[in-house]
């Protein structure tokens, strides 16, 4: 059963997109020389994972998870989960977005501090300064 599920997943293009985004982010973090570009790469990496979660919640033909007849006295109506997209990943990602914003904030604050110290954000120049000390 697991194998089919996996091939199911693999056949879905959204996952492919996520992987590409992740790789772009990772590449920026590793290869870029500028600290702010690295930070942008990191953010892309995190966003890719957020997209991954959100896309898992999607269902074909389903709608947003708000129960329409909830207040009309028809509260006891049977709810079919298939009619609604899964709300939980969205909720989780709300938190994850907050986390990634906070990470971004801390990273930028540190980058500002680094800039004040060395007068540059280019890593090779900073390394050169450290070596000369």
């Amino acid at each position: 059963m697991g194998v089919e599920l996996f091939s199911d997943i693999a056949s879905k293009y959204n996952y492919l997109g996520v992987v590409i985004l992740m790789m772009i982010g990772l590449y920026a973090m590793i290869a870029k020389n500028n600290l702010v570009k690295k930070i942008i790469g990191m953010n892309i990496f995190q966003t890719a994972i957020i997209l991954f979660y959100v896309s898992t919640a999607a269902k074909r033909g389903a709608t947003i998870p708000i129960i329409r007849h909830g207040h009309n006295g028809h509260g006891h109506e049977v709810i079919h989960a298939a009619e609604y997209i899964n709300p939980l990943p969205h909720v989780l990602m709300l938190t994850a977005i907050v986390v990634s914003v906070a990470t971004l904030g801390v990273a930028l604050a540190l980058a500002v501090k680094v800039y004040h110290q060395y007068g540059t954000l280019e890593e090779d120049e900073i390394r050169g300064q450290l070596r000369n000390k």
Binding site: L26, M29, L35, K38, M42, F45, Q46, I49, F52, A96, T103, V106, A107, L110, A111, K113, V114, Q117, I126
Partner: peptide
């Protein structure tokens, strides 16, 4: 320290993101 902290942040974020995935 700030530079070291920033590098730690990059690695740490990758780690946490992998866990999240």
């Amino acid at each position: 320290a700030p530079l070291a902290g920033l590098n730690y942040l990059f690695m740490g974020t990758i780690g946490a993101s992998l866990y999240l995935l």
